[in-house]
Design a binder for these strands. Sequence first.
DNA 1: AGGTAAACCTGGACGC
DNA 2: TGCGTCCAGGTTTACC
Length: 275
Amino acid sequence: MPELPEVETTRRGLQPHVEGHRVASVLLRRPDLRWPIPREIESLLPGQRISAVRRRAKYLLLDTDAGSALLHLGMSGSLRVLPADTPVRAHDHVDIALAASIDTPARVLRFNDPRRFGCLLWQAAGDVHSLLARLGPEPLSDAFDGDYLFALSRQRKAPVKTFLMDQSVVVGVGNIYAAEALFVAGISPLRAAGKVSRERYVALAEAVKLILQRAIDRGGTTLRDFISPDGAPGYFEQELLAYGRGGQPCPRCGHALRQASIGQRATVWCGRCQR
DNA sequence: AGGTAAACCTGGACGC
DNA sequence: TGCGTCCAGGTTTACC
């Protein structure tokens, strides 16, 4: 489910309830998600004060003096901050209980993930987890621009949509926002990455930034099960121009939007506006 | 090295 | 109503 805007929405929802608070206890209702949950989550995290809630790519990090809990929401994961006595529902796999303080009641940070493609891992203090080691730049940073994409894409034969979704090229762009950005930039998702001009990569980088920022402003996209930590859905779905609209008229020219699978992912685009 | 496809897992939508 | 099939916001892993 979650691409960068949904993870960032989650981070922002978590931050006021989690940052500066102490972990009272950890409850694992199953020992694994995508991978086994490491021992440190149970042995080191309880008692620690969470100093920051950060995002890198589609990962969330809960920083403590001992190290960081590293979370990924996979396709169907969500995190919520709930009153400590909230009844458990199906697929509530992990509770990180937060200690009560003078001005806040006890709450629980609860990780729900039906498909279990998400993960909860541990990054020791001073370390960079191997999953974070080979990631590309953040799309909303100055390091990401058209010149960067142009330089990296030379000689590459994979479709530009596959290239854009490669997390070692740029992080955070998944299937929804890749389709949207290519639509806005007027680039066919099928075009080989190495055959897109510098000028058009400038337009693409700008489109990625614009769309991701706009989606963050709307609280992300809720298709099925994405919810923010306070239970609210995202409102970007109503602004989607291409994703999920195969067969419908192009919002720009009225021509029927095409749909096909590119790199194992359903892709929608306008054969007239996108070349 | 780059490119492609299988694999992981559950639930919802759909057709019969 | 029930069952089979297909599809879904991700990414590692294996293979060519």
